[in-house]
Amino acid sequence: MPFVLTYPLQWLLSRRPAGHRYMHALNRVWALLFIRMWGIPVDIIRKAPMPTGPYVYVSNHSSYIDIPLLFKAIPGFLNIIGKSSLAKVPLWGTIFGNTYITVNRDSVVSRARSIVQARKSLEEGRSVIIFAEGKISDKPGEELMPFKDGPFQLAIAVGVPVVPITMPYNHHFMPDVSGSLRVRYAPLRVVMHAPISTQGLTAADAPALRERVQGIVASALDPAAGGIPEPSTWRTLVAPKRTTAPADAVLPNS
Rank of each mutant, 00 (worst) to 15 (best):
H20F: 06
I165N: 00
I44R: 05
L188P: 04
T6Y: 02
V4P: 00
S178A: 13
R15F: 05
V163M: 08
T202S: 12
V42D: 01
G215L: 08
I228Y: 06
R111M: 08
S219K: 05
Y169D: 10
R182S: 12
M145F: 06
G76K: 09
I67D: 02
K120H: 15
A48P: 07
I130N: 00
G76W: 05
E123V: 04
R111A: 10
S63W: 01
K139G: 07
K83R: 12
W234P: 06
G19M: 07
V108H: 03
I228P: 04
V162T: 03
T102R: 05
Y57L: 07
E124T: 15
I67C: 00
V4I: 12
F152R: 06
A132N: 10
S62A: 15
T233A: 13
K120R: 15
L188C: 09
R184F: 01
N253L: 03
D222C: 11
D205R: 05
P8D: 01
V158G: 05
I136F: 00
M167H: 14
L33V: 12
V4F: 03
F3T: 15
M192F: 00
A247K: 12
P2N: 15
M145A: 07
S137C: 14
S14C: 09
R111Y: 01
S121Q: 10
D138T: 13
V158K: 10
P195Y: 14
H171D: 04
H193A: 12
E211I: 01
R210Q: 10
W38K: 13
F147C: 02
P246L: 14
L33M: 15
H172Y: 03
D43N: 08
R105W: 02
R235W: 14
R119W: 02
P164R: 11
P207E: 04
F173P: 05
Y7G: 03
P195F: 09
H171A: 06
E143H: 14
